[in-house]
Design a protein around this nucleic acid. Sequence first.
DNA 1: TGAAGTACGCACCTTTTGGTAACTATGCTT
DNA 2: AAGCATAGTTACCAAAAGGTGCGTACTTCA
Lengths: 117, 117
Amino acid sequence: MSDIKANPYSGSCPSRDLIAVIGDKWSLLIIPLLVNGRMRNSELLHAVDGISQKMLTQTLKQLEFYQLVQRTDYGEVPPRVDYQLTDLGRSLADILSPVDQWVVENFDKTRADPKSE
Amino acid sequence: MSDIKANPYSGSCPSRDLIAVIGDKWSLLIIPLLVNGRMRNSELLHAVDGISQKMLTQTLKQLEFYQLVQRTDYGEVPPRVDYQLTDLGRSLADILSPVDQWVVENFDKTRADPKSE
DNA sequence: TGAAGTACGCACCTTTTGGTAACTATGCTT
DNA sequence: AAGCATAGTTACCAAAAGGTGCGTACTTCA
């Protein structure tokens, strides 16, 4: 419906915020992880080595805000909550996963010194 | 040559730093910009609205460090310097440009409230 | 003579980020 | 009756990020 095109190259365009969220270090790891299915807080905490509870919660909240992730609270005790990608989130994951793959495949080249060739 | 696979999901893997650099808000804008050809400092400063000189220099330095961008100093006065993608950088740009495109195309959906459907 | 143009580096200072630890809720187990 | 498990939240604090303004070097043009 909106014909106004987002332009992240403009500082005042709100899409700049979205760029910051999906470009975030943790989002870049969490989103591709979730393509394998829903995950619980504790699972993510272990899968994403080094993330703190605080950052995990915060990141998931942002992703939820932008409709990329759906949070499901089962209302049980002890608490059970899990997270899954929305359709929108899945379409983004298709684009972000290659970024992770690129890093895995090319990381060594980013350090190769031209002199040693 | 290196058969050791990078794993950004491990906190101690140095590829985690690369994830942070290429996931950076500014890198995400600068790298796709450079596919159109080499650009000077002042051009980038205007093209990427809102970036400060400090952040631009800092970001370009990181990208240069990871062999993604090549800096050329023509040694002229007044100074003339420009930046272009390396082959490696170009291969990354092919993967990052879709991220920007996704944002432009889907930004409005990230705000759509399910209730209004 | 002196201001402009270019690509910075540097120092200073404010804002933001992110870690840690303590606290919450509640039903089940020991 | 006490403690555990889970998924948080909150407050506090240290560290890092990032903006602003000034300095630099050299040549050209008014």
